Computed example of a mutant assay.
Amino acid sequence: MSKLILTHEVSGLGAAGDVVEVKDGFARNYLVPRGLATRWTKGGQKQVDQIQAARKSRAIATIEEARDVRDRLQATTVNIAVRSGENGRLFGAVTTADIADAVKAAGGPQVDRRKIEVPRPIKTLGEHKVHLRLHEDVQATIEITVVPGK
C-alpha cells in the first residue's frame, strides 16, 4: 500500500489535499504519472495544509448555504449558445468550463468546473441535465438549454 497526497479531486477516492492509502500499482501507474497525487512525506504535510486552505476558501461553507445555492440554480434557466450544423449537431461538445461560464452569466454563483458532472457528452442542441456537487452532502441537478449561436 502507498500513502499519497491527492493534488486533484479523484472521483471515489477523495478531494485535493486528502491523504489516502491506495494499492502500489494504482499509485505508480495512474495517480502519480497523471499528476493527481504525490508521494506522502513529512515535508508534504505543509503542502497538504496549503491545498486544504485553498479548497476551504473556494468551498461553500455550510449545508444551508449549499441548499440555498442549489435552490437558486434549479430555478435559473441556463442557456449556452454554440455553433451547430444543419441537423442540430454541435461542432465539438459543450465542456464543463462552458457550463460554469453560462451559470455565472445567468446570475448564478461562480461554480468550479471540476464540480460539474455531465452524464453524457453534450453534442446536440436542446435541453440537457447536468449535476453539480455544491457540498459533500448537497448536489444540484440543473437543466441547460443548448441553442444555436456564435
Results as ranks from 00 to 15, higher is better:
94 V>L: 11
71 D>Y: 02
44 G>Y: 05
29 N>P: 10
63 I>D: 15
69 V>E: 04
79 N>E: 10
105 A>V: 03
54 A>Y: 00
38 T>A: 02
29 N>K: 05
64 E>P: 13
84 S>W: 08
43 G>F: 04
25 G>W: 09
96 T>L: 03
72 R>L: 12
82 V>G: 02
36 L>W: 02
109 P>M: 10
29 N>E: 11
106 A>V: 02
83 R>Q: 11
23 K>G: 03
88 G>C: 00
52 Q>D: 07
76 T>R: 06
28 R>W: 14
100 A>G: 13
80 I>V: 07
64 E>D: 15
79 N>D: 05
69 V>D: 06
103 V>F: 04
78 V>N: 02
77 T>M: 03
101 D>V: 04
100 A>S: 15
38 T>P: 00
65 E>R: 15
103 V>M: 01
46 K>E: 00
55 R>Y: 05
87 N>S: 12
110 Q>R: 08
96 T>M: 12
41 T>H: 10
47 Q>H: 11
60 I>V: 15
83 R>S: 07
109 P>W: 08
41 T>Q: 09
47 Q>E: 05
58 R>Y: 01
101 D>M: 04
54 A>S: 04
107 G>W: 13
63 I>P: 07
25 G>S: 14
110 Q>I: 11
36 L>G: 00
72 R>A: 13
24 D>L: 14
55 R>W: 12
97 A>D: 15
27 A>P: 15
92 G>S: 05
26 F>C: 05
78 V>K: 04
111 V>D: 03
88 G>Y: 09
52 Q>T: 04
68 D>V: 00
63 I>V: 15
40 W>Y: 11
88 G>E: 06
103 V>K: 01
30 Y>N: 03
51 I>G: 00
34 R>S: 05
83 R>K: 11
47 Q>F: 05
95 T>E: 11
110 Q>E: 15
108 G>H: 08
107 G>P: 02
52 Q>P: 03
69 V>H: 09
81 A>Y: 10
80 I>W: 13
58 R>Q: 07
106 A>G: 00
66 A>F: 14
104 K>D: 01
29 N>F: 13
84 S>Q: 09
93 A>M: 14
37 A>G: 09
61 A>K: 15
76 T>Q: 02
69 V>F: 06
87 N>G: 01
74 Q>M: 09
29 N>G: 06
91 F>E: 12
31 L>T: 13
105 A>W: 06
76 T>D: 01
32 V>K: 06
108 G>A: 11
49 D>K: 10
62 T>I: 14
40 W>R: 00
56 K>T: 10
77 T>V: 02
58 R>M: 07
52 Q>Y: 06
90 L>S: 08
